[in-house]
Amino acid sequence: MTAPHFHSTTEGRRIAYIRTMPEGDGANLPGIVFLGGFRSDMEGTKALWLEERARAEGRAFLRFDYSGHGQSSEDFLDGCIGDWASDAAQVIAAQAMGPQILVGSSMGGWISLLLARERPERVAGLVGIAAAPDFTEDSMWEGFSDKQRAEMEATGRVALPSDYSDEPYIITARLIEDGRRNLVLRSPLRLPFPVRLLHGTDDTDVPLTVPMRLISHAQAHDMRLTVMKGADHRFSAATDLHLIWSAVAEVTASLG
């Protein structure tokens, strides 16, 4: 495991990151930034594989942990979408040069869209992997039973079972409330750059209706969805990983 560097945000959070500097002809191409998912970290399969490919092609590459994730500071339960989007914006501004190709996995897809909305000049293109915009509202809150909503109101949190861990997900009222302030599918969303969305038919966390809704909602001139038969939410099988890099290459080529 490569030892990370740390970026201190204006709020005092310490964000762990690892940056690969460009070499050769790759230095003339936009850098690539990987944005991970909810409760994931920058040591995951997709992040490391993309870093390896970027390094092989001399491309700048940046991966990092949101606050409360991985090797960054803070407690996960204190975090929310707005905090994590701010973490991403600040570390990208400080550690990446010029417009970047954002590769967002699951929640990272939502974070990428927030960055594209707030700082479009820093985004050269976007690749969404099982992107999950607005999931705190449309998946979590809408999926709560009356009993769970009452529990949230009484205690400020609800425990949900996880398919990826023996420990349940603790969903806080702050996460839900802040998510409502950062929704991207309820107001105009302009994406003036190449966008590629990748989704699996066996994704049980984010239904295929989500990327379809995003395509219908966004104002974009070059936006495509590729559906991979048999791929699940992790999207980390060998064929999935090659498809991700193909999407990055396609976005790069579209930029001329």
Score class of each variant (00 low, 15 high):
Thr2Met: 14
Ala3His: 14
His5Gln: 15
Ser8Ala: 15
Thr10Arg: 12
Glu11Tyr: 06
Arg19Cys: 13
Thr20Ser: 09
Gly24Val: 06
Asn28Ser: 14
Gly31Lys: 03
Phe34Leu: 09
Phe34His: 11
Gly36Val: 03
Ser40Ile: 00
Gly44Val: 06
Gly44Ala: 02
Ala47Asn: 04
Leu48His: 02
Ala56Phe: 05
Glu57Asp: 12
Arg59Asp: 01
Ala60Gln: 14
Ala60Asp: 09
Phe61Gly: 03
Arg63His: 07
Phe64Asn: 06
Phe64Cys: 12
Asp65Thr: 12
Ser67Ile: 12
Gln71Arg: 15
Ser73Ile: 10
Ser73Trp: 06
Asp75Ser: 11
Phe76Ser: 07
Gly79Pro: 15
Ile81Thr: 11
Ile81Met: 12
Ile81Tyr: 05
Gly82Leu: 08
Ser86Tyr: 04
Asp87Leu: 05
Ala89His: 13
Gln90Glu: 15
Gln90Val: 12
Gln95His: 00
Met97Pro: 01
Pro99Arg: 06
Gln100Lys: 09
Ile101Ala: 01
Ile101His: 02
Gly104Leu: 03
Ser105Leu: 04
Trp110Tyr: 12
Ile111Pro: 00
Leu113Phe: 05
Leu114Ala: 11
Leu115Gly: 03
Glu121Asn: 10
Glu121Gly: 10
Arg122Lys: 13
Ala124Lys: 09
Gly125Cys: 11
Leu126Thr: 04
Leu126Phe: 07
Val127Tyr: 02
Ala130Asp: 05
Ala132Glu: 10
Ala132Gly: 08
Asp134Pro: 05
Thr136Trp: 14
Ser139Asp: 14
Asp146His: 06
Asp146Trp: 06
Asp146Leu: 15
Lys147Cys: 03
Gln148His: 06
Ala150Val: 08
Ala150Asn: 09
Glu151Ser: 13
Gly156Phe: 04
Gly156Pro: 09
Gly156Glu: 13
Ala159Gln: 14
Ser162Ile: 03
Pro168Leu: 03
Tyr169Gly: 00
Ala173Ile: 11
Ile176His: 04
Ile176Gly: 01
Gly179Thr: 02
Arg180Lys: 15
Arg181Cys: 07
Asn182Ala: 07
Leu185Pro: 07
Arg186Asp: 12
Pro192Val: 08
Pro194Glu: 02
Leu197Met: 13
Leu197Val: 09
Leu197Ser: 01
Leu198Gln: 04
His199Lys: 07
Gly200Arg: 02
Gly200Leu: 02
Thr201Pro: 13
Asp202Gly: 07
Thr204Leu: 08
Thr204Tyr: 07
Val210Ser: 00
Val210Ile: 12
Arg213Cys: 00
Leu214Ser: 01
His217Gln: 10
Ala220Trp: 04
Ala220Ile: 11
Asp222Ser: 14
Asp222Ile: 10
Met223Pro: 00
Thr226Trp: 12
Val227Thr: 12
Met228Phe: 15
Lys229Trp: 04
Gly230Cys: 08
Gly230Phe: 10
Asp232Thr: 04
His233Met: 13
His233Trp: 04
Arg234Asn: 03
Leu243Lys: 05
Leu243Cys: 09
Trp245Ile: 00
Ser246Gly: 13
Ala247His: 10
Ala247Cys: 07
Val248Lys: 03
Glu250Tyr: 05
Val251Cys: 01
